[in-house]
């Protein structure tokens, strides 16, 4: 339960971090370290060098710019939970954070780290997917932005290249017609969910448009249930639950069998659909 030896360097700037990443074949970025250090302790990861980004100035801010809420790579859960900008402009995130692990983990863990790590059972990747976030990535040639629908590539794999780092999350601002909902089933408070669902929609008359349903803990990545989205837009909740059979393909694990996960996914969908249809949030 001790990490294998590794070198360690503090990056002074994003450019410096990228330079260090380029100079080493087997480097890992460390931010909050709440997933990575556990993996190091268990030797599931044994990088040659850790590049610590915690001292890079300018990555700890939450701000509104160009119609987006920008969350820097070092914004921690505890900080986001206290942020009025997050509760006003990204109420889905504010709803989800209390479900993320425990208070001591939220002291250090970062939203950006969770998205970059892309754990299929984590809340933040699914929230980003539901919100239609844009992920800001820095590399040797400067910054680029990737739409969240193109970001997750496989188990713990994302669009972030080997010599690149995530620098910010950009979320469309919440508005009067936006609806958000969040739910998860976990065995115990703070455990990874057996099944979870983050959802957004736009209220249109008595119905819903632009529904985005992002499930987590049901596959290799957070995944959208597009058949169910279409059914909800048509006002058919039971049709949406039925559509999950085509949308989701979970494997059973030690916490829940495939059948249990599918049953819980349907139960969550009914709950979340009712929440989305409620009057203005």
């Amino acid at each position: 339960m001790k990490p294998a030896p590794f070198a360690y360097a503090k990056a002074r700037s994003v450019a410096h971090a990228v330079e260090l990443l380029s100079a080493h074949d087997d480097a890992r970025i460390i931010a909050g370290g709440q997933s990575l250090v556990a993996m190091l302790n268990m030797r599931l990861a044994a990088p040659e060098i850790l590049i610590d980004i915690n001292d890079i100035p300018g990555l700890s801010e939450v701000s509104v710019e160009d119609g987006f809420l920008r969350i820097g790579a070092l914004v921690r859960y505890a900080q986001a939970q206290r942020s009025p900008l997050v509760s006003t402009h990204a109420p889905l995130i504010a709803r989800a954070i209390p479900h993320v692990a425990h208070a001591a983990i939220r002291s250090r863990g970062t939203l950006g780290g969770s998205v970059a790590f892309a754990d299929p059972a984590a809340e933040m990747p699914a929230c980003m997917l539901a919100l239609g976030a844009r992920i800001v990535i820095a590399g040797v040639d400067g910054e680029r932005e990737v739409a969240i629908d193109d970001f997750f590539k496989g188990l713990y794999e994302t669009a972030i290249g080997p010599a690149e780092m995530l620098v910010a999350l950009r979320l469309p601002l919440h508005g009067p017609s936006r609806r958000v909902a969040f739910g998860e089933y976990a065995r115990r408070r703070g455990d990874y969910a057996m099944v979870g669902l983050a959802a957004t929609a736009r209220a249109q008359g008595a119905g819903l448009a632009d529904v985005r349903l992002a499930y987590f803990s049901v596959g290799l990545n957070a995944v959208r249930a597009q058949g169910a989205e279409a059914a909800l837009e048509a006002g058919d909740v039971e049709g949406a639950v039925a559509a999950l059979d085509g949308d989701l393909d979970p494997d059973g694990d030690i916490h829940a069998s495939r059948d249990t996960k599918m049953h819980l996914a349907g139960a969550l969908l009914r709950r979340v659909a009712a929440e989305l249809s409620e009057a203005a949030q």
Binding site: G33, V37, A38, A104, S107
Partner: peptide
Amino acid sequence: GEITRSCLTLAVQ
């Protein structure tokens, strides 16, 4: 001043 897992924090940090 913030509660922290000391097993998930490197001393060097």
